[in-house]
Design a protein around this nucleic acid. Structure first.
Length: 277
DNA sequence: ATCGCAGCCTGTACGC
DNA sequence: TGCGTACAGGCTGCGA
């Protein structure tokens, strides 16, 4: 599901597509919860007529900067997808928000489970400021990260998933990161040795970078999972070491991968490489 | 401070 | 084949 590498892939595709610089001529919303707490009508009035100035990413948000001091923060949550279409291509039943652009194209938001949201705001920092550091930004330093690790007394898995601790990891990349670092998801953050903490820092960055290089992870059907702007699958699922590989051999030691539940979500570990003690 | 759980949704994979 | 149920996972808000 969309985590940092998938969102980054979509953002890069959006930039390459030429939608930056276009004016939004009309806005149609087919599922009101997507624009909550704003009503679709209010949302549409505020967005229509503005120009797209810039598209970026912060954590798992797509940040679309508009003229007039407004920004759209788009969160794909579980099944959100961006697509470009040219009318009169019919609307798919899962497309819930459509922006018509002044070059005749339409930017369409598709979301099977409708968990995603489009936040219109004139103060995006009020939302993104609460998030933890960007793991791939130059300012993300191992010293700061290790100090913050020791300030918490939490299990590693939920800590890595906590967007206020570090931005961008989801279930897939958290499991892959912990395998790479040879750390158990139930380990407490304050018990890590300095080498273990450094391993974790490096593994986060390496795992996310590989995900971006492979244009994201697409498990199963791309229509119901991740696809990029042009509907392409990612390739990172072929590189996964533990996620969704229960019973298959660990690439490092051949021990069968095990699945366990941590913080109400599935976790995948090599019981030999990732000892709990 | 940290944890567990319900809720938001729908498609898919399972058992019978 | 069809029906019912569990499950997938990002995030919030609640109570413990």
């Amino acid at each position: 599901m969309p985590e940092l590498p998938e969102v980054e892939t979509v953002v890069r595709d959006l930039r390459a597509s030429g939608v930056v610089g276009r004016v939004i001529e009309s806005v149609r919303v087919y599922w009101p919860a997507i624009t909550a707490p704003l009503s679709p009508a209010f949302f549409a009035r505020r967005v229509r007529g503005r120009r797209i100035l810039e598209i970026g990413r912060r954590a798992k948000f797509i940040v679309i900067r508009l003229s007039g001091g407004y920004s759209l923060l788009v969160h794909l949550r579980m099944t959100g997808q961006m697509g470009l279409a040219r009318p009169p291509e019919p609307r798919d039943k899962h497309q819930h928000l459509i922006l018509r652009l002044d070059d005749g194209r339409e930017l369409r938001y598709r979301d099977i489970r409708k968990f995603g949201c489009w936040i219109l705001t004139d103060a995006p920092d009020a939302i993104t400021g609460r998030l933890g550091p960007e793991p791939l930004a130059p300012g993300f330093r191992s010293g700061d990260f290790i100090a913050r690790l020791s300030r918490h007394r939490r299990r590693l898995k939920p800590l890595l998933l906590d967007q206020t601790f570090i931005a961008g990891l989801g279930n897939i990349y958290a499991d892959e990161t912990l395998w790479q670092a040879r750390l158990h998801p139930l380990r407490r953050s304050e018990t890590l040795s300095a080498p273990e903490a450094r391993r974790l820092f490096k593994a986060i960055r390496a795992t996310l970078k590989r995900g971006i290089r492979n244009r994201g992870t697409t498990l199963g059907n791309a229509k119901a999972n991740f696809q990029s702007l042009e509907g392409r699958r990612g390739a990172n699922q072929e590189q996964l070491k533990v996620f969704h590989r229960t019973g298959q051999p660990c690439p490092r030691c051949n021990t069968p991968i095990r699945r366990l539940i941590v913080a109400q979500r599935s976790s995948h570990v090599c019981p030999r490489c990732q000892r709990q003690s």
